[in-house]
Lab assay of single mutants.
Amino acid sequence: NITNLCPFDEVFNATRFASVYAWNRKRISNCVADYSVLYNLAPFFTFKCYGVSPTKLNDLCFTNVYADSFVIRGDEVRQIAPGQTGNIADYNYKLPDDFTGCVIAWNSNKLDSKVSGNYNYLYRLFRKSNLKPFERDISTEIYQAGNKPCNGVAGFNCYFPLRSYSFRPTYGVGHQPYRVVVLSFELLHAPATVCGPKKST
């Protein structure tokens, strides 16, 4: 009989979030998941669920729940959905087409922007091929755009693959930082360890 609440607040209220290319994953298990708490945590810009209804979450049980978190800019949030393409979905964080879970995003301009520009958040701009779903690539190998090998040196047709967002508070919403948490629900042929409040007794 599990009584402890799932530590969603640790994920959502973390002081620092990860850069999207090096997104963070927390496995959540053996706890009571009260998803209604999430609705009250922040004024969400996005709370979209796929393959599951957000209002039914509190009635369900899962084997595992994974919470992935990272920062992107406002106009990239739409890429965090099944079947999307674009720089983020292709080279940084890719959801599977049959994704079961929820994408939660909110504006973090007050936390993640600086007047002089916050350069701490990076994204991958160049990659030889698209990522597979939930693949994480943290390599910093020089990207070869031409025929000549780069031998690890940046220059003509040889690019450092990561680029930094420079978040400034005066930017338009599309270029402001957004914190994203992706909850993916895993149903294996194994005992369910993460249940809503109704199912945990």
Rank of each mutant, 00 (worst) to 15 (best):
V37E: 10
S108Q: 01
V194G: 11
F12M: 09
Y165R: 01
L5V: 13
S164D: 04
V194Y: 11
L38G: 05
Q79R: 05
R179I: 00
Q144W: 04
F99T: 01
Y50Q: 03
Y50I: 05
A192I: 13
P82D: 01
F44V: 14
N24I: 07
A105C: 07
C150S: 00
D68A: 04
G51V: 05
R127L: 02
S36Y: 08
I80M: 05
V11A: 06
S200C: 10
R27M: 11
L125C: 13
G174P: 06
G51Q: 10
N109D: 04
Y119G: 09
C49S: 03
G174I: 03
L60R: 10
S19V: 02
Y91E: 01
N30Q: 09
Y121S: 05
S53D: 15
K94E: 00
P191G: 13
Y143A: 02
S200F: 14
E135L: 05
T46S: 14
K148N: 13
F134Y: 15
R25C: 00
R179H: 02
K94D: 01
T63G: 11
R127E: 00
W23Y: 09
L111E: 13
P43N: 11
G174D: 07
P177C: 02
P43D: 12
P177H: 01
K94L: 02
C195H: 07
R179W: 00
D9R: 11
C195M: 07
K132M: 12
K48T: 09
E76S: 04
N40C: 07
Y178I: 09
D137G: 03
N30F: 09
W106M: 09
N13T: 10
D68G: 03
D68K: 04
Y21W: 08
A22P: 00
W106Y: 08
P7S: 14
T85S: 15
D68V: 04
T63A: 12
K26R: 15
G74D: 00
V180E: 00
L183R: 01
R27Q: 12
S29F: 10
Y91R: 09
C195A: 08
T15K: 13
F167E: 00
T3V: 10
R179E: 00
F44M: 14
N4S: 13
L95I: 13
L111T: 03
A145R: 06
L5C: 08
P54G: 10
L60M: 13
P133G: 08
E10I: 08
F134M: 09
T100R: 13
G174T: 07
F44Y: 14
V20D: 00
N40I: 07
R73A: 07
I28M: 15
S53E: 15
H175N: 04
I142M: 12
E10W: 08
